[in-house]
Amino acid sequence: HHGSGALAALHADGPHAGLPVTRSDARVLIFNDWEERKRSEPWLRLDMSDKAIFRRYPHLR
């Protein structure tokens, strides 16, 4: 199991509170979210491209 239990660094406060600090933090969040959702949506594709990251977390651009 590759990303399970990996912890992402999140901004503690300010405008980005609760959001990932780096792209690799964002990838951890996206992976964990996908892993949760694919139980009920097995067709869901995992997209951890930069484009997917920016779409979801525009502050990382």
Rank of each mutant, 00 (worst) to 15 (best):
H1C: 13
G3S: 09
G3Y: 14
S4H: 07
S4K: 09
G5P: 13
A6Y: 14
L7P: 12
L7H: 09
L7Q: 14
L7D: 07
A8F: 09
A8N: 04
A8M: 05
A9L: 09
L10R: 06
H11S: 03
H11M: 04
A12D: 07
A12Q: 15
A12R: 08
A12Y: 08
A12V: 13
A12T: 15
A12I: 14
A12N: 12
A12W: 11
A12E: 13
D13S: 15
D13W: 08
D13E: 09
P15I: 07
P15F: 05
A17E: 12
G18I: 03
G18N: 05
G18H: 05
L19W: 04
L19Q: 05
P20I: 10
V21S: 11
V21F: 04
V21Q: 15
V21Y: 05
T22G: 07
R23C: 14
R23T: 11
S24G: 13
S24I: 10
D25M: 03
A26I: 01
A26T: 00
A26R: 09
A26E: 01
R27C: 13
V28E: 04
V28C: 12
L29D: 01
L29C: 07
I30E: 00
I30D: 00
F31H: 07
F31Q: 06
F31T: 05
F31D: 15
N32M: 11
N32E: 08
N32Q: 11
N32K: 14
D33K: 06
W34Y: 12
W34E: 01
E35H: 06
E35Q: 13
E36S: 13
R37G: 05
R37I: 06
K38D: 01
K38V: 12
S40D: 09
E41I: 02
E41Y: 09
E41A: 06
L44I: 08
L44K: 04
R45P: 12
R45E: 11
R45F: 08
R45T: 10
L46Y: 12
L46F: 03
D47R: 02
D47C: 04
D47I: 03
M48G: 02
M48V: 12
M48Q: 06
M48S: 04
M48F: 08
M48R: 02
D50I: 15
D50V: 11
D50W: 12
D50N: 13
K51Q: 11
K51L: 12
K51P: 13
K51G: 08
A52I: 07
F54S: 06
R55E: 14
R55H: 08
R55L: 14
R56T: 10
R56S: 06
R56E: 14
R56D: 03
Y57H: 01
Y57Q: 15
Y57G: 08
P58R: 01
P58D: 01
P58Y: 15
P58T: 02
H59Q: 01
H59K: 00
R61M: 14
R61A: 13
R61E: 10
